[in-house]
Write a protein that binds this DNA or RNA. Structure first.
Lengths: 115, 115
DNA sequence: CGCCGTTATATTCCGTGGTATATAACGTGG
DNA sequence: CCACGTTATATACCACGGAATATAACGGCG
């Protein structure tokens, strides 16, 4: 997964950024691990922050992105909803489409940066 | 100038973001006003921060973006170099090209956000 | 010459975002 | 039944970024 494109894309809602690199990765990690806390650990992020981001996601979109259930040891955990999967996929698609659209310009721009 | 596209684009250097919405606007304001401090005032930003951003810009690119001269009352001030103008123009071009490239997807994405 | 508005820099202060920690309630598995 | 690993929440701490302030050196302009 070559996920370094030399740029970051953030989609802005009315108030703040609704989706960006951080939230997208967090949701993907939750999908992988089935748990907010495991995803947070994997990203070196505090559980509190991860939970706040999930809260923001669920609040900012028309439908929940992540659904949760209390209880551990495979009792509870977190799941990414089908809607959530579509939103992250849509974000990733926009990210790479934008990246492809300006790839040539970006390469030229990069050449002017000090290495 | 309709400069709200529902997204932000940041171009990443090796260490941090080399160019983004904030630095781009700052350089444009410096070009307009001929002064770092006037640009900072116009953006509601402290002079120190504006100066630090200019320093970062001049350091991160192969050539200076902003050239400065000490002394006030039209004695000193700041100017955007031709190179700096090209870099900001290139950034703005990438910004709008990326925006146009994903306009349709972005509109669909936005429709899923709570208003 | 003196004033004004710069750049440049240091220092202090403060708000805020995030971490760390603790606790509660809970569900599944051993 | 008990331990474990969750979600959810509160609290306290802390590091960092940025603002505010002060100062110095400087260069035009009146």
């Amino acid at each position: 997964m070559s996920r370094y494109k030399g740029l970051t894309l953030r989609v802005l809602g009315k108030r703040a950024a609704a989706m960006g690199p951080g939230k997208a990765e967090l949701v993907e990690r939750i999908a992988e691990t089935g748990s907010i806390s495991a995803a947070a650990r994997a990203m070196g992020m505090s559980y509190r922050r991860a939970w706040q981001l999930v809260e923001a996601l669920n609040h900012d979109f028309r439908e929940p992105i992540v659904s949760t259930a209390i209880g551990g040891q495979r009792g509870g955990g977190a799941q990414v909803t089908p809607f959530g999967r579509r939103m992250v996929a849509a974000y990733r698609a926009m990210e790479s489409k934008a990246s492809r659209a300006i790839a040539a310009e970006l390469r030229r721009f990069d050449r002017e940066l000090r290495r």
